[in-house]
């Protein structure tokens, strides 16, 4: 091994170590990041770090073709970030949409008898099974217990239930209290205080729960017409 090879070997290993540290720190920000833009910024950063990894691998293996892969990855990462930015803009005023808080408030927003009705009808077709899942989501575990046919949906419920456990600052009771005013929320009114922001996200969450509840009600209408 010549001197040049030794230098390169050591540098590549050190670089890999530094990149691994950077990667883990960025992943930590993705996991913890309090808001959606935080996570998107961290994901954008992850793409950059992975490009660095690819470059180091190109040096260690000598395959310069990896450069093209890195460029392609950079393009994909850029497009992904642009798409995420559009998504953030589109979800204006309803941050936290798509995240369900399983628990007490959902039961009174979703009409339980309707949901069980759907679940009982559910097992016929694929689309019907889907709506059964939605119903199980919105009405919580009670409806799942009532009808045995909605059992296939229960893993989805368990999965959803595990989501809010990871995300802090959601008070289910609060969301239930403030439900009536949920529709009037545009964007967080107070910009400086973080407490009010978390409050308003829980508000908007209950709003999103209402929305899905509405879906669960409207969906079963279609298979009913077919009969």
């Amino acid at each position: 091994m010549s001197a040049a090879d030794t230098i390169l070997f050591v540098a590549a290993w050190l670089g890999l170590a530094l990149l691994v540290a950077a990667f883990l720190l960025t992943v930590w920000r993705v996991v913890r990041g309090p808001t959606l833009p935080d996570r998107v910024v961290a994901l954008d950063m992850l793409v950059g770090i992975v490009i660095g990894f690819i470059a180091l691998i190109a040096i260690r293996t000598g395959f310069t073709l990896y450069i093209d892969i890195a460029i392609a990855l950079g393009l994909v990462g850029f497009l992904a970030t642009v798409a995420f930015a559009r998504f953030i803009l589109a979800s204006k005023g309803r941050q936290g949409a798509g995240v369900y808080s399983a628990g007490a408030p959902l039961q009174d927003t979703a009409p339980a008898p309707d949901a069980t009705h759907v679940a009982a009808r559910g097992a016929r077709g694929k689309s019907a099974a889907k709506s059964a899942k939605v119903a199980a989501r919105t009405s919580g575990k009670t409806s799942a217990k009532k009808s045995p046919k909605s059992l296939p949906a229960s893993p989805a419920v368990a999965e959803l239930a595990s989501v809010p456990a990871a995300s802090p600052a959601i008070a289910p009771g609060k969301a239930a209290e403030e439900k009536p005013s949920a529709k009037s929320i545009g964007k967080p009114a107070n910009k400086s205080a973080s407490k009010t922001v978390s409050k308003s996200t829980s508000k908007t969450r209950s709003k999103s729960a209402e929305k899905t509840a509405g879906k669960a009600v409207t969906k079963p209408g279609k298979p009913a017409k077919g009969e």
């Binding site: 540098a11 590549a12 050190l14 670089g15 890999l16 530094l18 990149l19 540290a21 950077a22 990667f23 720190l25 960025t26 930590w28 920000r29 910024v41 961290a42 950063m45 950059g48 770090i49 660095g52 470059a55 180091l56 040096i59």
Partner: peptide, 16 residues
């Protein structure tokens, strides 16, 4: 290599 990796690490620290 070392400069690039160090900058990436600094960016990750800054992110946190």
């Amino acid at each position: 290599i070392l400069g690039g990796a160090a900058f990436a690490l600094v960016a990750a620290i800054g992110l946190n």
